[in-house]
Design a protein around this nucleic acid. Structure first.
Lengths: 153, 153
DNA sequence: GAAGATTGATTCCTCAATCTTC
DNA sequence: GAAGATTGAGGAATCAATCTTC
């Protein structure tokens, strides 16, 4: 019985990937809620805007960046706008388009959320990866993501 | 400038983890829909039942296994039952409880979904992991998941 | 006619009660 | 009173139109 390598069953890895995602997000959302903060989707939206050029994004680009549908994004921006964290601006050059722009209060909210979120990432995820594992994961997921995006035509 | 290791920024790994999850699920759901098949949540539910002892689970155990809330599961089982893929059975010993049991049609549906799903897992995920990467990922995620579940009291 | 964004209708999820049995 | 499950009401996601501008 030679060379009985432990070859990871990849379908098991996929199942683990899904379960870990679900459990970690559940814990993170709960921590944000307990701190009186909005859900992760709001963080994602605010962060996407804050790191964009001139702190603004075309709605379609923002949807692409967040990997959500356009109609979903329209309503998310509605809620963010109503909370005063974002505002819409009509595009000058292409008057079909609209920008979402983060407001000062939006930036402030993101800064309030970050400690809770980053602490959760460190404690629940990052803290369990060795440097080598983090690198392996980054490479592998990067490849999978690029391929999936490529084949999405 | 000695030892300039490429240390993966773990927060970047987390971001990549989230994005990859979102994109891959999007593609998988689309493939199932295009094949005229139900969403992944149905597969999860059916598979959880099929691998359980006597092909049945207490609803609360099923919710736990699927990492969804109880009320969410109640309604998911409603839909599955209406589609004839699952049926509820009252528990004999503890008459508060209910079981979900997979039906023959449910098992058949799971078998119809599996080729599409497994093909997507292989092509979009598994195919991009080397054996070493799969092992690293399994270990790391396994640790993170166990810790998160443990600390969830 | 196509791209960018929105809307209406439906489905689905979530939260706080509620009901029943322990 | 607590555990198991369900319900009603409200919020969010989805799909197929729709509207406007290119």
């Amino acid at each position: 019985m030679h060379c009985m390598e432990k070859k990871a069953d990849s379908s098991a890895v996929w199942a683990l990937f899904l379960t870990t995602h679900a459990v970690l997000l559940e814990v993170m959302e709960r921590r944000l809620a307990e701190a009186g903060l909005p859900p992760l989707a709001w963080y994602d939206a605010l962060w996407a805007l804050e790191r964009a050029a001139e702190r603004r994004l075309r709605l379609s680009d923002m949807a692409e960046a967040m990997v959500i549908s356009r109609s979903n994004l329209t309503r998310l921006v509605d809620r963010l706008e109503e909370a005063g964290l974002v505002k819409r601006e009509r595009s000058e050059d292409d008057r079909r388009g609209a920008y979402a722009v983060i407001t000062a209060r939006g930036a402030q909210m993101r800064r309030r959320m970050w400690p809770v979120y980053s602490q959760a990432i460190a404690e629940l995820f990052e803290g369990h990866l060795s440097a080598a594992e983090a690198q392996a994961m980054q490479k592998a997921l990067g490849r999978a993501l690029a391929a999936a995006r490529g084949s999405r035509e």
